[in-house]
Write a protein that binds this DNA or RNA. Sequence first.
DNA 1: ATATGTGCAAATTCTTTGCATTAGA
DNA 2: TCTAATGCAAAGAATTTGCACATAT
Lengths: 155, 155
Amino acid sequence: MPHTHSKADAQFDAALELLRANHQRVTEPRKAIIGILTKEHGPFTAEEVHKRMKKGSCDLVTVYRSLAAMEESSVVRRCDFGDGAYRYEINTGDHHHHHIVCRACHTAQTLDVCVADGLERIARQLGYSKVTHLLEIFGVCPHCQTEQDKQPRQD
Amino acid sequence: MPHTHSKADAQFDAALELLRANHQRVTEPRKAIIGILTKEHGPFTAEEVHKRMKKGSCDLVTVYRSLAAMEESSVVRRCDFGDGAYRYEINTGDHHHHHIVCRACHTAQTLDVCVADGLERIARQLGYSKVTHLLEIFGVCPHCQTEQDKQPRQD
DNA sequence: ATATGTGCAAATTCTTTGCATTAGA
DNA sequence: TCTAATGCAAAGAATTTGCACATAT
């Protein structure tokens, strides 16, 4: 069966739709960025996105500006892995999630569980508005572990 | 009753002890930094710490270097409020905690609950070692809210 | 047609580093 | 005494901004 409409394609189309709905223009650089974020497994920094683009597609500055604009319209989501650079992933919209991030190679795997709702409720009870949260798990992935790093399971 | 030994004093003494235990020197700048972190309510960026020090106490670079050194020895803990600057607080050692951070004024209040243990266990089951996590709650504090920002309670 | 986006260069912000000097243990 | 810490200047990394030009709607 021909792969005429993969999940990535659907996310790509939805992203362009979202841009239009927010009166933001669908430009070549933005399409290229969205293409990368939907087809490759991120999240990526602006520089990582730029490196993955066809050479000469656009300036790194445009990647920064596009990602910032697209975060405004919820096309992408910004992640903070605590290492001094922001990363972006496509915003699937369905439900928010978190990551397990390898401290060594910085690859991330998605964690579909979230446990911070209770804390958000506490914040609202304390009178805070527009409550959100940041939650990421860090560790050294099996692939990056040397034998002596491998901890015996502690569960 | 004279306040001869406040909680801040106890934390201050414990911090110096910890420095010595780790063969790090107890210098004037470090004492000043620890003094601020124990007496004032943080967490603070390196620059915020420096501004709070008596003018001429030490260079900003020394604050950066001291904070980094003191994080090594667990005298302080580094926090990431997702706004591009790291913040430090004294490490009380007892148990880790999180913050509710005001998006507007960047003040933080401590949240003594943590809910990420389950997620850490999942990460270990997935084969990750040295698992830690980052969890902060963001919102606009009552003080920074204008009337229209004030959300009806949603709990 | 016109507001929005882009490229290039330069500025900003946060943080780190090199090296000679100073000061804890 | 002698190693670790500091000051000053300069470098570095990530990100932002100004302004003229280009392009999507």
